[in-house]
Design a protein around this nucleic acid. Structure first.
Lengths: 185, 185
DNA sequence: ATTTACGTACAGTTTAAACTGTACGTTCTT
DNA sequence: AAGAACGTACAGTTTAAACTGTACGTAAAT
């Protein structure tokens, strides 16, 4: 918790300031479908410069190594951390992605894509059936089916649009429309 | 479950086809932070033309009225259903929003906005403290604080960009860049 | 003024998720 | 080849979320 040759008073202050941010991250990351403690881990890794081992995470979060293994995997799947490799280091090393634009693109495009795929698959299965029923002799069935077809058409149009959006975000074309504030490096 | 003067065989078929879609919706709506049963309710309401009462929902979902009250409130908060009013009807009536573009805009802009607000608030609190530490006599503290400041700068730039995106989506300006496929009405 | 209908607060229960500790397979070290 | 270090599968526990039924406050109906 406290480094050796270091002004620990000021370090404490710095960590408190970082915690303000980390807490906010932990709170808002529920939007990304993770628990607060997962968010806290990401926040912690975000501020740490060097990559982190599971043991370091466990110590920093005051949690079990098993939990850290699971949490790290979650963050890995969400593409907000990456596994890095260092010569001579046996332990797995994880490092937080620093570029929020990248994490934004990764996360939302992945989610949107999945939504499109699953739903379009279902639509393609259901549509022929409903199309058949839209020719029914039974007026009520026919009208209901026709209304459903219209709904499916609209859904497909939406997914067509979403596909375009995903592509624009993934390729970076979106930044032609909404430019990034220029980087300070 | 079975209407009176209706070809129940065909109705069954139609409901099976609808269920394919509803199941897909229930599955993918986890991305929107709701449970499958909440997704199922939305899907059910999406296909039903008329607004629905809590009792009808309870019957359709095979769940308690209390659950439906909670679930409906959730959907209301996410802005994917709305309360409608009909003359002479005492019961609350809920109706699914049919326009996916609207639900997209409502949901993501709300989430992004909250993320920006909470995190920027934390940044504004933490930054002055870190700025002070960036002048520290202790070299380690000073360098750490300076690195942190850069991180905060980058975060702010990202949120600036996100703000622009939210605005483009909310105002509909986004459709100038990624046009909607034309409506079939 | 009673009664009836409605939605939800509340308490209790069931179900699922988060988390821990032990044990095991794998890989590096010696 | 034996031993040590590492990550994770697994089983068990704790915590939180989902769901139910009863009860109550409010408002319409009689």
């Amino acid at each position: 918790m406290q480094k050796n040759n270091v002004n620990s008073e000021e370090y404490k202050k710095l960590n408190e300031a970082r915690d303000l941010i980390i807490n906010a991250m932990a709170e808002t990351m529920d939007f990304y479908g993770v628990t607060p403690s997962t968010g806290r881990l990401y926040g912690t890794m975000f501020f740490l410069e060097k990559p982190m081992t599971l043991d370091e995470m466990a110590k920093a979060m005051g949690m079990s190594k098993t939990s850290m293994s699971n949490t790290a995997r979650t963050l890995l799947e969400k593409k907000v951390v990456e596994k890095v490799w260092q010569k001579g280091v046996r332990k797995d090393l994880y490092q937080a992605e620093q570029d929020f634009f990248k994490t934004f693109a990764e996360f939302f495009c992945h989610g949107w894509r999945r939504e499109m795929e699953v739903n379009l698959k279902a639509i393609n299965k259901a549509e022929p059936i409903i199309k058949e029923l839209a020719e029914s002799d039974d007026e009520q069935v026919r009208e209901a089916a026709q209304k459903d077809l219209k709904k499916l058409e609209n859904a497909k149009k939406y997914y067509l649009w979403l596909e375009q959006l995903v592509e624009a975000v993934e390729t970076g074309k979106i930044y032609e429309f909404i430019p990034k504030p220029e980087e300070s490096e």
